[in-house]
Design a protein around this nucleic acid. Structure first.
Lengths: 106, 106
DNA sequence: GCCCTATATGCCTTGACCGGCATATGCCAA
DNA sequence: TTGGCATATGCCGGTCAAGGCATATAGGGC
């Protein structure tokens, strides 16, 4: 169980559900257990993976642990995605240019 | 082997290497085999997964198959990422506003 | 039709991971 | 310090996917 990356972390449907849930507000483990309908140890394990990928962070309050979104992980994903997004942009530009030129020919 | 989603597709390091490679230009299977240094059947299998996730598309030329990036898959990923990106933006806005206000207090 | 090239597919083994369960840890209150 | 609550961790069994290998398929040239 080497340090997990963001790709494998978001590869699991349950973990994506956890992230979706955390979008509205930070949550206790118990709250996630209830809303997702899965066992507490399971939630804790998934949270661990998400934490290793810097997708969530913990705020400890006595015996309780509030989990919230952490930007870093998803920013990593965004950074990986960026060069591909540029390619789309280029293609859209090329398409636009092509359309402009065909318009001129009319 | 149900229809694979983009998350599991990009979860595999080798498949991300394939995508990176395809960023520059479309490639034959044999070219990927050579540049990545893995077996041909392996490359074909990974390409299959990428194709199912709409991350690549094929152009058939006789016995040869040119694989190229397909926007759709990564756009799906981008769409999933979008609501999280909004949250970053909100936080940056809030931070900026906070900094502005503290500046005024000086 | 036959062979060669390019690629896909099937089988098998191994390793990783998910989920369930039991249990350990940490923290607080009385 | 004892008990109880909130959460983490360890172990186990089943499942699934990755890689290696052999082989099937498809197309083109002779």
């Amino acid at each position: 169980m080497v340090d997990r990356d963001v790709f494998t972390a978001i590869g699991e449907p349950t973990r994506r559900r956890i992230l979706d849930q955390l979008r509205s507000r930070e949550c206790l483990v118990g709250e996630l257990v209830e809303s997702l309908g899965i066992s507490q140890p399971n939630v804790s394990k998934h949270l661990r993976v998400l934490d290793q990928a810097a997708l969530v962070r913990v705020r400890i309050d006595g015996p309780r642990r509030y989990y919230a979104l952490d930007d870093h992980g998803l920013r990593d994903l965004d950074a990986w995605l960026a060069p591909f997004r540029e390619i789309w942009a280029d293609r859209l530009d090329a398409l636009e240019q092509h359309l402009d030129e065909t318009n001129k020919e009319d």
